[in-house]
Design a binder for these strands. Sequence first.
DNA 1: CTGAAAGCGCTAACAT
DNA 2: ATGTTAGCGCTTTCAG
Lengths: 331, 331
Amino acid sequence: MARIKDVALLAGVNRSTVSRIINGEGKFRADTKRKVEQAMAELNYRPSAIARSLATASSNMVGLLVTYYTGGFFGEMMDQVQSELDCHNKFLITAQGHHNAEGEREAIQRFHDLRCDGYILHSRYLSDDELRELAKLPTPFVLLDRFVEGLEDRCITFDHTLAAQLAVGHLIEQGHRKIACISGDLNRETSKQRFQGYKNALQAAGIPFESSLTSEGNYGRESGYQAALNLYQQHDDMDALFSCSEEMMSGALQFFHQHKIAVPEQLSVTSFDSVYLCASFYPTVTAVHFPISDMARTAVAVLNHQLKKTETDIDRHFLPKLISRCSVLPR
Amino acid sequence: MARIKDVALLAGVNRSTVSRIINGEGKFRADTKRKVEQAMAELNYRPSAIARSLATASSNMVGLLVTYYTGGFFGEMMDQVQSELDCHNKFLITAQGHHNAEGEREAIQRFHDLRCDGYILHSRYLSDDELRELAKLPTPFVLLDRFVEGLEDRCITFDHTLAAQLAVGHLIEQGHRKIACISGDLNRETSKQRFQGYKNALQAAGIPFESSLTSEGNYGRESGYQAALNLYQQHDDMDALFSCSEEMMSGALQFFHQHKIAVPEQLSVTSFDSVYLCASFYPTVTAVHFPISDMARTAVAVLNHQLKKTETDIDRHFLPKLISRCSVLPR
DNA sequence: CTGAAAGCGCTAACAT
DNA sequence: ATGTTAGCGCTTTCAG
């Protein structure tokens, strides 16, 4: 593998001249430049990003922490982050948190070992305190879909409560009263918020909250199926259902199909939706969209400002939008 | 950020001693080891993977090229590759090929710039010749789901033709004759193979091939919907359908639901399935499973042998299995 | 068992 | 406009 000194030798110049030409710093005589470029081409030379990192104390790498790779949600994030990063010629390093704090810590450790210039963390299990501690270290990072007091500048947030409220509110507007809810794992902050949004919507309409109309899932399809089953056994007269995730909605729909419960004729449904799965169901499901792509893009933008230490007024807070599809009928 | 020399200073030993202790090379007096470990802890020292790479001429990074991040298929691959790599303390670098040769070239370029020790390539657009050229360079790589003559040792393959044959054969066994097919983009090698499998199955059963019973999609859901529409308009009496991808099956199912065509009572269907989407449909769809996870794991294993220059008899060829679900009824 | 010194491939003052 | 030189943080001979 050719090194910079081979290029310099072949071109008959000094290594630093080559370096400068590569990095476009300063001016050079046209023919030096030509000679160098020719030598690089001839030797098929590519500078070593590693050696560069060491010399410049900047790796050009950005670490992205996600909870899991599978399921499509992550792919969406990754796609956005990568394409933003590509524009700036930075490298993307990813790691999974594996659904626990220790996993997230290890992931960040890896980023640190690689001396990533910055991180984008979709952290679910690290405590606010731990994150604030991390913020004291020199490496900048932004938090994706998380709010931590004291770290406001680094937080890309989404209003989960309002989103759920919107989805349930739509059901109410269409005249539904007996509305069931499949929540996510209620240990998770955002799940709680979504659940709260469900309650808020009911309250705003003066509908009493009834806990037997709610069932906790784990965001997976099977849990959605199971929850639908539970709910239906207790309330075969419910007139609507709200699911806190698209995957769980997928399972619920399976249950309804199987039991010949017509959606939306007999039962209206709405859902949370991240990767437009709700558009692929039958019927297509009216849902609040969780704009993870836009948020991921924003995360990179904000991180870039932190890296350059420039101020920014990029809007870091996202509001939900309801996407009307075919799963709701007025009562 | 503490460096090795800070640790050495604090522990009162030489840098090389620290280095040796970190890497567990040789023997040391118990108390030197203790002192050093204490110093490392105190300084919160973590060796720089970058400096290490430069010194050892080995980056401990592995590059994974995929065509796209979105859709879940990639996540599955990535998950497997990462967890295998984790065991060996290696770093995963990913890049997208962006559905064209130039994109794949750039991705590999990135891997090279980072001096990855090896690559796992899910390459769709680079020619066999180009891949053979690449094989002449010193960096080892493995090809995922691709067969290139001369590179047999590096190819992890799957029998797409047989898989399709199995899925269509099952339909035939159940007494179906008028079987439609939604194929993938026929410019792609594996799509051609799947399509060929469809034809093979028909031929084996003595059923004449009828091109109006086939429709080409692009692996996306919408194209599946469209294809189902096309096919049904021409042959509303078809008795079965085979889809070359789960996504397209999703779209087809939407069409059938919408038009009250009962699956499987009125129409039996089978599909290709990568990430078990077919289990989430209603009805659940009988499908041949494309074992991308196992293949990805194997890819890492094979690459590891290449990196260590050891021989291996790992089985690199995968055979399809049919997973029976609820979308097929005998005629 | 440990230390001294050179070097990995590059960049960045500092000269000229 | 280009060359000289000294690192970046680590590993790895070679000594002892």
